[in-house]
Write a protein that binds this DNA or RNA. Structure first.
Length: 896
RNA sequence: AGGCGCGUAGCUCAGUGGGAGAGCGCUACCUUGACAUGGUAGAAGUCGGCGGUUCGAAACCGCCCGUGCCUACCA
């Protein structure tokens, strides 16, 4: 009688604890990698290069689930290519995020009852740098928690000295090329942030508003025209009324002056094709200084531009008696006054899109001001050409159309921002003669008159200006560095689709213009991560999944595996936390398989894997698992190379759990415990070989658990990170082994099914029988009799001739035509068996009818490929056979 | 208003011209020496609807319904 072992003793026996404890493992291995500099990019001659630049998160940012997805995918590819032996670089860094960062620091100042103006520009910027050093970049540590294998020694910040130099270089060259200009232009103005916003920085929210119909009297008092507006306060800046040139209703109106209500100003009527006759009354009030379209109309008709409010959205002296009022208060007052004086025709409820600042959600005010612009057309053309001729590929390919459409309609890019934190525009104006100088370094004197008193431009550049240079500025440009030579163009850009135009398109433009080469060969656009119902995650809805909390609960590897498994191209990601738990269990499963393997191989020499190099000498299950390993490696590599992330995850999952664990490991237990040394060694060798392959394939997704298991395997082992990624082995594919194994698995499953349906207790040993006409199959079944018995808990498993089985047997005809019988004595439920047979018969007949229909169709026989016809014929024969067997069984049961 | 997707088992999703799949959940049984975070077996789907192309459609085309997103100069 042996004594029962305690769990503690069990643990010691296998070296590994019973359950995978991720916290300690993750921390330990990340420290190891950092200390050993395993993330450092190599630049060896003669090797392929693989490089990614991180989409730099805002320095103010904290890791959200979108970052988690984005960086998991990048790390996955980076680790894959590093294992393939490429010179591999993943450049990390952060973005200075102009408005966002300035807002954070301004809020901090507000708690001290100060504004940035109290400090002055210089002190304020110092303060921002202090904040950056102190509190900025928490996201970097969070990325490390995710396991990101960035080359941290190359971390960059968009306001670094080197990157700032690149910014000035680009600005000056674009200016010299005539691609940057300063102009009076209508921009989106945020009255709270006090800056211009690019079109992309304005979000259009559907808003319930009102449409006011106003009566505009003719100057001579002979009539009136009704115009409609959502912003009646802009009335005071009107400089025309526009109607469509072919609008019969207003024929001749252009000869009449219009008097603005509540004012004495008289404005002209202009004819413009832009006016849509169907909308409202077909007459449009034109406010060129406060509306983008009106601005365009104003240009066409040379209209005056009257600004009626200041930068804060307060009405100015042009607003006459409304001066000093807030724009929205003014709207109310004006409506009231119009109504009292009979100028208000009617008010309609009206839903429309209102532009709001993407940072602070303040309603944006279109207004004119002096701004700097990039002429993007020539740059955009180069980007479009690069995408069209395949120098850049976009994944998923559904984005091509969207990309082209947007590039066709692109407008000049307003790059100046009226804030303090950012790259200050390198332009100086002479106080004496007014000469504008755009130069790389601050000039000491005017190049025209020599005067030394110069004003520097106060605006800074749009944050996206410096990010547009990121793929080359981080590699040392404008210097000609070895890094540029080795790693530019970068291999792939992985980012969320919502910044395709903010950022991705602009990197293309800048890269092509300045380096005459694309910034990246591939662009992979991933989806937004939503909650499990498909809703956007937001703090107010309370459906946010915090990556760090998730990591704490399930471990980084499980989280990364989940994100990978969800990342199917062209589909939104609905994140269900239950999936994460499922993948945590997968990792635990692998852990325990390794634990089992370890029990048998821990004292072996690692060279036992050599057994797998000669599959011909191995018994069937080994040949089979090697064949399956090979197929999995091919699937995984293909998925990796095609950015089919979900397939990478599912291939490894399916293979590891349902082929390796469920079948292979179970099958070879007999051999592992066998007295036959050859059997034992073969089993150990192949077991170790396949386990190693699984770990290597899984490493890019789950770096921690694979590293930990790897380190426990026999022999002296370095980091798995630098092992070669598995390659297909020509000796492994084996169709014969696949088919033979399939037959054995069918027999086992059939036996189990019969047992289970008849409620035979697992401890009861049965005497199963098999009927099989095929000689080769009979040999195979004979050879593996022991395994079959052990896997089905059978006392014996005999291969019989037809007609010799007992009548009271449960029966299944397998797919491969082999019949399995399990005598059940009084356990058999005749009614249930007959029911089952009837159902089976119905299915067979249905299928047979379909197949016969096809084969009876002359068109099918002549049009379908031969292989398909042959297949259908084989199917027909098989089905007919099955039908006959089914009939036999019914007769047999009928005797009971 | 245009454009782009999506609609497959209760849920989350693969599949994409030649026999309907996975995970979770559900049901039954089982602590068999890696794992109960497990095992075995099972139930469950007019592949959104209607037409069309084809020898053959879940897949390709058209229309419709539902749903999501993007873009826009609807004052």
């Amino acid at each position: 009688m042996t004594e029962k072992t305690t769990p503690e003793q069990t643990s010691n026996k296998y070296n590994l604890p019973k359950a995978y404890a991720f916290e300690e493992v993750e921390q330990r291995w990340y420290e190891y990698w950092m200390e050993n500099k395993t993330f450092t990019a190599g630049m060896a001659e003669g090797k392929d290069s693989f490089s990614i630049v991180i989409p730099p998160p805002n320095v103010t940012g904290v890791l959200h689930i979108g970052h988690a997805l984005n960086n998991t995918l990048q790390d996955l590819l980076t680790r894959y290519h590093r294992m393939k032996g490429d010179n591999t670089l993943w450049v990390p860094g952060t973005d200075h995020a102009g408005i966002a960062t300035q807002n954070v620091v301004e809020r901090q100042l507000a708690t001290e009852d100060k504004t940035r103006h109290d400090l002055g520009r210089e002190k304020f910027i110092e303060r921002v740098w202090e904040w950056k050093t102190d509190k900025g970049g928490t996201i970097i540590n969070q990325l490390k928690r995710m396991g990101a294998s960035c080359d941290w020694d190359r971390e960059r910040f968009t306001m670094d000295e080197g990157l700032s130099k690149a910014v000035r270089e680009v600005f000056v060259r674009l200016y010299d090329d005539g691609l940057i200009y300063k102009g009076d232009y209508i921009v989106n103005w945020c009255p709270r942030c006090l800056t211009a916003l690019s079109d992309d920085e304005v979000e259009h929210d559907p808003t319930k508003g009102k449409l006011y119909h106003l009566r505009y009297p003719y100057a001579d008092g002979s009539g009136e025209v009704i115009v409609a507006t959502t912003r009646p306060e802009t009335m005071l800046g009107d400089t025309a009324v526009a109607v469509h040139p072919e609008d019969e209703r207003y024929k001749g109106l252009e000869k009449i002056g219009i008097k603005i209500p509540l004012s004495d100003r008289v404005i002209p009527v202009v004819l413009d094709h832009h006016v849509q006759r169907e909308f409202g009354t077909g007459a449009l009030k034109v406010t060129p200084a406060h509306d983008r379209d009106d601005y365009e109309i104003g240009l066409r008709h040379d209209l005056e531009r009257i600004k009626i409010m200041d930068d804060h959205g307060i009405m100015n002296e042009q607003a006459e008696k409304y001066a000093g009022m807030d724009r929205f208060a003014c709207r109310k007052q004006i409506v009231k006054d119009l109504e009292e004086q009979g100028f208000l025709d009617k008010i309609e409820e009206y839903d429309h899109a209102v532009g709001k600042c993407y940072r602070c959600a303040t309603v944006v005010e279109p207004t004119t001001s002096k701004q700097w612009f990039v002429s993007v057309r020539p740059l955009a053309d180069k980007a479009v050409a690069a995408v069209r001729d395949g120098r850049i590929n976009i994944y998923p390919n559904t984005w091509y159309n969207t990309f082209y459409a947007w590039m066709d309609n692109i407008r000049d890019w307003c790059i100046s921002r009226q804030i303090w934190w950012g790259h200050r525009i390198p332009a100086w104006t002479c106080k004496e003669c007014g000469k504008l100088m755009v130069v790389r370094e601050a000039p000491t004197a005017c190049i025209v008159c020599g005067n030394t008193e110069l004003d520097q431009e106060t605006d800074v550049l749009d944050t996206w200006f410096s990010s547009a240079l990121w793929p080359f500025s981080t590699l040392g440009w404008p210097e000609q560095t070895k890094e540029l030579e080795t790693f530019y163009p970068t291999s792939v850009l992985i980012t969320s689709f919502d910044i395709l135009f903010f950022w991705v398109a602009r990197m293309m433009m800048m890269g092509l213009h300045f380096l005459d080469e694309v910034p990246f060969r591939d662009v992979y656009l991933h989806a937004l991560v939503r909650d499990k119902h498909g809703k956007k995650m937001s703090k107010s809805t309370g459906n946010v999944i915090d990556p760090l909390v998730t990591i704490g609960q399930y471990g980084t590897d499980a989280f990364r595996f989940t994100l990978t498994a969800f990342a199917a191209q062209g589909r939104e990601i609905k994140m269900d936390e239950e999936r994460i738990d499922g993948y945590r269990r997968f990792i635990n499963k692998l852990w325990n398989a390794a634990r089992f393997a370890q029990m048998h191989i821990k004292d072996s020499d690692p060279s036992i894997v050599a057994a797998a190099e000669k599959p011909a000498e191995l018994v069937l299950p080994h040949r089979w698992i090697l064949s399956r390993t090979n197929a999995t490696i091919l699937d995984v590599r293909k998925a990796l190379d095609g950015y089919d992330f979900n397939l990478i995850a599912s291939s490894i999952y399916q293979f590891t759990w349902h082929e390796f664990c469920d079948w292979y490991v179970e099958w070879i237990k007999v051999d592992l415990f066998s007295d036959d040394e050859t059997k034992r060694e073969q089993a150990r060798g192949v077991l170790l070989c396949v386990l190693e392959n699984i770990l290597k394939m899984l490493h890019p997704i789950c770096p921690f658990v694979t590293e930990e298991i790897w380190s426990q395997l026999p022999g002296e082992r370095g980091t798995i990170m630098l092992e070669a990624f598995p390659e297909a082995n020509p000796a492994w594919p084996n169709t014969e082994a696949d088919q033979s194994m399939q037959l054995l698995m069918d027999v086992i499953s059939a036996t189990r099914t019969i047992r289970s349906e008849a409620d035979v207790h697992p401890s009861v040993k049965v005497h199963a029988s098999i009927i099989c006409a095929d000689a080769a199959k009979r040999d195979l079944l004979h050879d593996f009799n022991d395994s079959l018995c052990s896997m089905t808990r059978s006392e014996s498993l005999s291969i019989m001739d037809a007609g010799t089985v007992p009548d009271d047997a449960g029966h299944i005809l397998t797919e491969s035509g082999v019949e399995v019988f399990v005598p059940l004595k009084d356990l058999i439920d005749v009614e249930a068996e007959l029911d089952k047979l009837a159902r089976e018969r119905k299915k067979i007949e249905q299928e047979l009818k379909r197949v016969q229909g096809k084969l009876g169709n002359a068109k099918f026989l002549s049009n379908a490929p031969d292989a398909v016809v042959e297949k259908e014929k084989g199917k027909q024969a098989e089905l007919e056979n099955r039908l006959a067997k089914n009939e036999e069984s019914r007769e047999r049961l009928g005797k009971l």
